[in-house]
Design a protein around this nucleic acid. Structure first.
Length: 439
RNA sequence: GGAGAGGUGUCUGAGUGGUCGAAAGAGCUUGAUUCGAAAUCAAGUGUACGGUUCUCCCGUACCGUGGGUUCGAAUCCCACUCUCUCCGCCA
């Protein structure tokens, strides 16, 4: 069927019905992000689409009707030549109408796919990260009675963290970890996975680290953030996942979950790969910002009415990890100017890093409401209506292992340059209770 | 990498050009029967978009994906993709 468009994958993020019926409200909401949605232009385009679609469908109906009567006439042995003559120019007219409709539809899609998600009412207005609002602080930054080292100095002192070796094979923004330091990162990962599966009800999953572009479209990393992704030269290309959110959330793609299966809660440990384009000169020291890092990710697929509560819970699960590790942190809600493109509301957890004398992001927990679900066609069957409806997706780091490693090194450092292993990690350390310097 | 088979609705599975959105069975829903249940019988049961006289009705699209042929395609042609079987290779 040439020119067919109705089955083209949805790439809009906001409900098109809402854009039509409440364009003004949408524009006002997006304005808080400093995003201008031209509701008037959109409405005009929509009017054109509707008129063209009616035309196209009428022509198709005509074609179908005549095709049917030709079939019937032929079956009865009648002469179909006059009938064929009658529909001769129908094909051309239909083709023209369809191509007009296609043009308008792709214009609409372009506008729609560029729209960020609607903001939650709770999101405070603000321009950038400086306007994020602190919700709480947990734990007391420790008083050190010796000179504080940062994780790079600690790692070098112990002989367990080697940037030179990494640079030789991979260039900048990579690290090599040796012995107990590598083990400590693995311990952190194990501890987090165990906590989330045993105490928070998540199901562990193992997923691909290479995905195709559709998966990234589904979660919203594409098309807007193509520069942040590593991409292979295969055709079609593979992308290295920037976060487990991508493959795990895509588990729900093109599927309908039964009401009894909800909510779905997944936890996955994966490496994450980011090109960090545009961050030259930022966090160049240490392993805060690497091209490759380990992360434990929490993903939930929930009934729409529960997603607000689910975000609080999910963020709480990430907080539990920091609390068990006894790492001081603060929780902030991102302001309208800092919330990610696809997020409805986001909490960041920032861990205290003595080496920087600052709180640094270690987890970001977001409610995407139906934004990703619409692109993924991720649905559930609502028992009340019996109908498939878009579900809501959430995700959050639970937590970033690389940065957790930095936090443990710096917060648990001792005067002699060693690092005391947090109690909850001891079962994973094969008897080692501290990282000692190589003498 | 080579050879072959195949992708149809919630599932199994018919369907090789003309009322096919799609047989049949299963499942599910409702009703009948029952003290209740099972069994049995009857009816109903996809999604999206649009129109509308808006809990009714009508139209369009969807049978792996994308093209093509045709007045008309689930059905024919081409490309791709995924799954399965056999061989090779391999952690």
């Amino acid at each position: 069927m040439p020119g067919e468009t109705s089955k083209t994958k949805k790439q809009t993020m906001i409900d098109p019905k809402l854009l039509r019926s409440a364009g003004h409200d949408v524009a006002a909401n997006l304005k808080r992000r400093n995003f201008i949605f031209d509701e008037g232009a959109y409405a005009t385009l929509e009017e054109r689409r509707k008129a063209l679609q009616v035309d196209v469908e009428a022509l198709r109906a005509e074609r179908n009707a005549s095709a049917r009567s030709i079939g019937k006439a032929k079956a009865q042995g009648e002469d179909i030549a006059p009938l064929l003559a009658a529909v001769e120019d129908l094909g051309k007219k239909l083709e023209e109408a369809e191509s007009g409709l296609n043009d308008v539809q792709s214009e609409l899609r372009e506008v729609e796919s560029g729209l960020p998600n609607l903001l939650h009412d709770d999101v405070p207005d603000g321009a950038d990260e400086n306007d994020n609002k602190e919700i709480l602080r947990w734990g007391e930054p420790r008083d050190f009675d010796f000179k504080i080292l940062d994780h790079v100095e600690i790692g070098a002192g112990l002989g367990l963290l080697d940037f030179d070796a990494a640079a030789k094979m991979s260039g900048s923004r990579f690290a090599v970890m040796h012995g107990l330091l590598a083990r400590l990162q693995r311990a952190l990962i194990q501890f987090m996975l165990d906590t989330h599966t045993a105490e928070h009800g998540y199901q562990e999953v193992y997923v691909p680290y290479l995905v195709q572009s559709e998966a990234l479209f589904g979660t919203g990393q594409l098309p807007k953030f193509a520069d942040d992704q590593f991409k292979t030269t295969d055709d079609p290309p593979f992308y290295l996942i920037p976060t487990a959110e991508v493959p795990v959330t895509n588990l729900a793609r093109d599927s309908i979950a039964e009401g009894t299966e909800m909510p779905k809660k997944f936890v996955a440990h994966t490496p994450c790969f980011r090109s960090e384009a545009g961050s030259y000169g930022k966090d160049t020291r240490g392993i805060i910002r690497q091209h490759q890092f380990e992360k434990v990710e929490l993903v939930q697929m929930v009934e729409p009415e529960n997603s607000d509560v689910a975000l609080e819970e999910l963020c709480g699960h990430a907080e539990t990890v920091l609390q068990k590790l006894n790492l001081p942190y603060r929780k902030v809600v991102l302001c309208s100017g800092d919330v990610g493109f696809g997020a409805h509301k986001t909490y960041d957890l920032e861990v205290w890093l003595p080496g920087q004398q600052a709180y640094r992001e270690i987890s970001s927990c977001s409610n995407y409401i139906d934004f990703q679900a619409r692109r993924l066609q991720a649905r559930w069957r609502n028992p009340d209506t019996g109908k498939p409806e878009l579900l809501h997706t959430l995700n959050g780091s639970g937590v970033a292992a690389g940065r957790a490693l930095v936090a443990v090194m710096e917060n648990c450092q001792e005067a002699d340059g060693s690092v005391t292993v947090p109690e909850v990690l001891l079962p994973y350390m094969a008897g080692a209770n501290n990282l000692t310097p190589i003498c």
